[in-house]
């Protein structure tokens, strides 16, 4: 615990001192904010039309702010995370290896697990800041309409869990190389493949299809965005996170053996 405290404060401090976190947070907030502006403006237009033209209202069905704004917003936040989080995690171990500080870090009395969890929590800290900055958008929805707060709450839980999965994978990739670009590229590629595996489920055989659908990293977010916290989805993200943190441990261990 003590070691984690020191590792975490060091991680957060170095994120704050470097421009990386600032750039990632800013870009993330701008992209999600811009998307929100578009869907929200679109929604207001539709609502306005529906009000003045009952025929059109029939066409759209009940105009529901959760359906039209909140859910699409969550899926886009998920997508932007997929792009931005690898940029946050790429430096975690790669930078320490490149600059040689890993040599000192690993000769201090801390376990490999602590070193990894320290990195993980550091990234999670920045990620929580990113998520918090999306909340004003939803607060705006709450100000003008009546969104289902349960759905919003569940959506955030889902995003947090999905983010932890992305981050653990990114940290693992970063533990494989001392090149930050390679670490980012590897995380990016694997996340996109995991993202798309749900697409091939449609034409794969029934059993394979199920597996692919289960693996698909973003599918599990959809239930959350419906306001449902399903244990199987929670388990998926927790297992995913644990698996990659474990693999990172093995990666550090094998580095010790290879020298």
């Amino acid at each position: 615990m003590r070691n984690l405290y020191f590792l975490l404060t060091k991680e957060l401090r170095s994120y704050i001192n470097s421009p990386v976190a600032l750039v990632v947070i800013t870009i993330f907030t701008i992209i999600t904010g811009y998307y929100f502006y578009n869907i929200f403006a679109n929604f207001s237009t539709l609502s306005f039309q529906a009000q003045s033209n009952p025929m059109a209202a029939k066409q759209y069905g009940a105009l529901n702010v959760t359906e039209f704004v909140v859910r699409p917003f969550f899926s886009i936040v998920g997508l932007v995370m997929l792009i931005m989080l690898p940029m946050l995690t790429m430096r975690s171990f790669a930078e320490e290896k490149k600059s040689g500080t890993m040599e000192l870090l690993l000769t201090y009395p801390l376990t490999d697990a602590e070193a990894i969890i320290g990195k993980f929590l550091g990234c999670m800290g920045i990620f929580v800041v990113m998520l918090t900055l999306t909340f004003p958008c939803l607060a705006l929805v709450g100000y003008f309409g009546q969104p289902e707060w349960g759905v919003i709450g569940a959506g955030y839980v889902g995003l947090l869990l999905m983010g932890s999965a992305f981050i653990s994978l990114g940290i693992f990739m970063s533990s494989l190389t001392e090149n930050q670009i390679i670490a980012a590229a590897l995380s990016f590629a694997s996340l996109i493949i995991l993202y798309m595996s749900g697409l091939s489920a449609a034409f794969a055989g029934e059993n394979v299809g199920k597996v692919l659908e289960y693996i698909s990293i973003i599918n599990h977010l959809e239930t959350f965005a419906k306001g449902v916290i399903d244990t199987s989805d929670v388990n998926y993200y927790i297992l995913f996170t644990a698996l990659f943190l474990f693999l990172s441990m093995r990666s550090l261990e094998s580095k010790r053996w290879r020298g």
Binding site: R2, N3, Y5, F6, L7, T9, K10, R13, S14, N17, S18, S99, G100, T101, M102, E103, L104, T107, Y108, P109, L110
Partner: peptide, 29 residues
């Protein structure tokens, strides 16, 4: 590891930390 002090050949340090902040981090670990 808790009983040794090691100075590696390349003296790898976190360049983005202030001296006492860095040393407190090391002392903590």
């Amino acid at each position: 590891r808790s009983k040794i002090g090691y100075l590696p050949e390349t003296v790898p340090l976190y360049t983005d930390m202030q001296v006492p902040v860095y040393l407190k981090f090391v002392a903590g670990l």
